[in-house]
Computed example of a mutant assay.
Amino acid sequence: MSTPPAPRGFQPVILRTHGLRPDEQVAAWRGWFDSVFDLEQPEPDGAGFLAESLAWPLAGMGISQVTAPGLRVMRTRQLVRRNPVDHWSLTLGGAETQLQTPRGRVRIPAGVPFIVSLGQELVSERDADQRLQLYLSRDRLEALAGPLDAACDMPLQGMLGQLLADYMQLLARRIPQLEPEEAARLPEAIAAMVAACVQPNPDRLALAEGQMEATRLARVRRAIRAHLGSARLSPQLLCRLAGTSRSQLYRLLEGEGGVARYIQKLRLEASHAALSDDRDGRSIAQVAEACGFHDPSAFSRAFRREFGATPSEVRAAALAGHAMRPLALDGPSAPALRDWLRAF
């Protein structure tokens, strides 16, 4: 009997409440946050608490992606004394956050990052959402302690704040694909990017340039995918959508064969994905048009050059059950957030 291959990639610590009885779910979620936060469900509805946390530990920091119903999170004076971990938490929420700290009350808009220190009391309340968090240890970012503390408890807005938000989203997409040896190099890059966005100076911006370029490229890619079918998709429109200059755009995509080539590449990838999905009932012509190809013959030629098969051959393979689909990865569990934080 053969042994199945081990899942590849950097495996997260996973907590899910979905397999528990509804009356056990909130207690299980509280158990993960025990001694770090107290939790309250603002409006318990008796339907349980379906939530998921994926947490990737790194050297001196960690990345967490949490999907949960509406929640009120408190770090009280008693908890600060009981568990004096004083990491920073850099958060990007999918819903507005109402934050209360010793500095006062503030509303953080959805999609805007903000920093809090776990060394202080705080109350955070928000509706159901998915949010990303970077936990940063003081030992790892000691040289940046002053600027990080000064930036606490307020929205990080402006161009660099948005760049940091985009970078966090890029991290969340990429980190499951990393091999452990690649993940070992990630903390240095994260620290450079955080330093450049929180307290920019020429040296820090230069050190984080590679991270910023990758983030800008992800922003351009997202803008292209959002407007794949538009005949108006052009370098000028991309510059406006991605918040970049024309020269910066051309420099970003120089290694991809240029702007026009990159747009066509993403359009072809999207059309291939649609034709490989046996649940997609659109005709080949409809898929092509939705992906920005308005000349069927030109689409077929470009598709075959890119993939070595015609659109109809890819569609036929999907209907025959031969299309490839990504497999979901699973990972180990852990007893509590406090142990994960203490490992930094």
Score class of each variant (00 low, 15 high):
E181Q: 12
L90Q: 10
V13S: 05
R81E: 15
G60S: 07
G161V: 01
E213L: 15
F299P: 04
A128P: 00
Q41E: 15
L58E: 03
Q199G: 03
A128D: 11
A196D: 00
A47L: 15
M193A: 10
V80R: 12
A270P: 06
V66T: 09
W32H: 08
Y135D: 11
R246A: 09
A151I: 02
V259R: 02
G48Q: 04
A270N: 05
Q65A: 09
M168C: 11
V220A: 05
L228T: 01
D86L: 06
S89Y: 01
T97P: 03
Q162G: 12
R342G: 11
R126G: 08
Y135C: 12
L122A: 09
V80C: 13
A189G: 06
L163H: 02
R246K: 03
A316P: 00
G48S: 06
E313T: 03
F49M: 09
W32T: 00
L132T: 04
P176T: 02
A145E: 11
R105I: 04
R107I: 10
R225L: 15
L144Q: 11
L164K: 01
E269T: 08
A165L: 07
L141T: 05
D339E: 07
E254F: 05
W29G: 08
R75G: 05
Q41R: 08
R261Y: 01
T97Q: 14
S124L: 15
L79C: 13
A318V: 02
R185I: 01
L228M: 10
L337Q: 08
P187L: 04
W32K: 04
S64C: 10
V220F: 02
S297N: 15
D129K: 07
L170I: 01
H18C: 09
A274V: 03
Q264N: 14
M193Y: 01
T3S: 15
L79I: 08
R221I: 02
T67H: 09
E254G: 15
D149T: 04
L90Y: 03
S297V: 13
R315A: 12
R103S: 09
C152E: 06
G60M: 07
H18N: 08
S124G: 10
E289R: 07
R107V: 12
E96V: 14
V287E: 02
G19T: 04
P147I: 09
L171R: 03
P332K: 05
Q169A: 13
P332D: 06
A206H: 06
P42G: 09
R240V: 08
A59T: 11
P109F: 14
V85W: 00
D127P: 00
L122Q: 11
E96A: 14
F114P: 03
R138C: 11
M159R: 05
S297Y: 11
L268A: 07
D295T: 14
D330A: 14
R304T: 10
C239A: 15
V220R: 01
P147L: 13
A151N: 06
Q98P: 00
Y135W: 13
I14Q: 09
V85P: 00
